[in-house]
Design a protein around this nucleic acid. Structure first.
Length: 501
RNA sequence: GGCGCCGUACCCAAGUGGCUAAGGGAGCAGUCUGCAAAACUGCGAUGCGGCGGUUCGAACCCGCCCGGCGCCUCCA
């Protein structure tokens, strides 16, 4: 069984075969840095993160490029509003982006090129397009001549006639055709500008991605991705520019992720239904790494091409599902003597079978919901095995397998002592609104103010002594005291006690 | 107007022509337990928006209808 991916270009699932044997070259559209990232950005980043991780899991060498568009009209507008230099605004949001991605556990790409650092390449490309007749200049502006590119529309499955029928294209007298788009924008007084053969100005949106992907990945590369809202016009225009410039095929596989929606509607600023990533973390009652995995599990429980409807209780449910997997990890990692039933043990067979099913699911266009179901199925099988007795070697292998299968998904990577088993909730009423209120939200929530492992162990030991002399009043009192700090105790049959945060 | 997507149990969500329609959350019952918790086991769609059609056979293909959404304008 080999990897198959859905290609927007051909509108079908295809066998994934990189151009150069084992090397995968992948370009993903990052963000225009003019504001904090929201859940939609998180989804896109996480989707391509798991694609990147899984390709490596599958033995490919991946060169992963994800850009920053750090010069754009929106950045200039923001700078004006804030009365700050535009490049400070960009730098600030690049930093915020990195902060959010780190929190989300998103791998850093191999290259993170910025438009402003590729002006030479951008200008060269525009020059080439002019020479070949695919562009024209008007008063210091350069436009792409869409009519000159025969197969324009093949990605978004649109035809020139349909586009004109839309009649929502901004009217610009200088364009020869309403569909033409800017490659270079002449600078107005006071605007940042770079020198060019057409006078001072800045690149139009789209050209920076063509130039940067060409420079870092070459003329033809394997995967180009982004949110599905980029299919038109952004990616369509990139294809037009790049193919016209090089005369070669551009990206071979186009991968697009679905939206995050709120109450069935696309998350967007105009609708005012945007949730910033930083707010999710700020409002969560769980530590960052736990919140990150809960959010990841939530997002990955829907296939990447479908829209996923965000809700606080959706994340809370994902957290519960993860708790059960971590609970299993905790029990597997406990070093206790268990009854042994080696002759009937089928643990290794179960693990092998799960790995095969997991890979089968991921090979089928990154079917993460199916992959998660396989992990959950494994949980049941291992729980049963655990109850019948597992050798310490088997338990070790089981833990390794769970962690190894979790890795390409970015899940099950938190050390067990750092996992928080208490339900995840959000403090803000807006985030909290649709959660059924079934827990006391005034209970202690913050991790930082909790007890240390040592303090907890000491109390657990005291309680053990009390139980040994049948002093259940004391034992129950200790349990209640720990519960006030959010610590749950679970007594095992052998008289020992496990605790959970 | 053009192009396209979706509608599966209380909620979320795989499956897209043929084994009992995955899995998770919530719920109920039982086993276990000083109590509790966890875990395990069992229960839950004769049916996949509706109506027709194709087929030996359809949630899955085709047609129509109902409902929801997206792109065509900046957007992950």
């Amino acid at each position: 069984m080999s990897l198959r991916v859905y290609n927007t270009l051909t509108a079908s699932k295809e066998a994934f075969i990189p151009l150069h044997s084992n090397l995968v070259r992948m370009y993903v559209c990052g963000v225009t840095v003019y504001d904090d990232c929201h859940l939609g950005h998180a989804r896109s980043a996480i989707v391509f993160d798991i694609i990147y991780r899984y390709l490596r899991y599958r033995g490919f060498t991946v060169k992963y490029v994800r850009n920053f568009t750090d010069i754009d009209d929106k950045i200039l507008q923001k700078a004006e509003r804030l009365r700050q230099p535009w490049d400070h605004v960009a730098a600030q949001y690049i930093q915020a982006y990195h902060r959010d991605m780190t929190r989300l556990g998103v791998c850093r790409p191999d290259v993170e090129p910025r438009a402003t650092e590729h002006m030479g390449a951008i200008v060269e490309m525009i020059k080439g397009l002019l020479e070949k007749g695919y562009a024209y200049q008007v008063e210091g502006n350069v436009y792409y001549r869409v009519a000159a590119y025969r197969s324009y529309g093949r990605l978004s499955k649109r035809h020139a006639d349909d586009l004109l029928a839309g009649a929502r294209v901004e009217v610009d007298d200088r364009k020869q055709d309403p569909m033409d788009f800017a490659l270079w924008k002449a600078a107005k007084p006071g605007e940042p500008a770079w020198e060019s053969p057409w006078g001072p100005g800045r690149p139009g949106w789209h050209i920076e991605c063509s130039a940067m992907s060409l420079q870092h990945l070459g003329e033809t590369f394997d995967i180009h991705g982004g949110g599905k809202d980029l299919i038109f016009p952004h990616h369509e225009n990139e294809i037009a520019q790049s193919c016209a410039f090089t005369g070669k095929e551009f990206a071979r596989y186009w991968i697009h992720n679905g939206f995050v929606t709120i109450a069935k509607e696309k998350m967007s600023k105009s609708l005012g239904n945007v949730f910033a990533i930083k707010d999710i973390f700020a409002q969560s009652t769980c530590p960052e790494s736990v919140t990150a995995e809960a959010l990841r599990y939530f997002l990955l429980s829907t296939h990447y091409r479908s829209d996923v409807s965000y809700s606080p209780q959706g994340v809370a449910e994902a957290k519960s599902a993860l708790d059960n997997l971590y609970g299993l990890l905790q029990r597997l990692e406990e070093d206790e003597a268990t009854p042994v039933a080696p002759e009937t043990s089928n643990v290794q067979r179960i693990l092998d079978h799960t790995r095969a099913k997991f890979e089968e699911a991921m090979d089928d266009d990154f079917n993460t919901p199916k992959a998660l179901a396989e992990l959950q199925h494994l949980r049941g099988a291992l729980n049963t095995a655990l109850q019948q007795g597992m050798l310490s070697g088997e338990r070790k292998v089981a833990v390794e397998t769970l962690r190894r299968l979790g890795e390409p998904l970015g899940l099950l990577q938190v050390p067990i002592t750092a996992w928080m088993f208490r339900p995840l909730r959000f403090r803000d009423p807006n985030l909290q609104a649709s959660i059924k209120i079934d827990v006391d939200l005034r209970a202690p929530l913050t991790v930082g103010e909790g007890l240390s492992d040592e303090e907890i162990e000491r109390q657990v030991q005291k309680r053990r002594e009390a139980r040994a002399r049948k002093d259940f009043a004391t034992a129950d009192r200790i349990r209640q005291e720990l519960a006030a700090f959010g610590i749950t105790l679970e007594d095992r049959p052998d008289g020992t006690t496990r605790w959970k945060r």
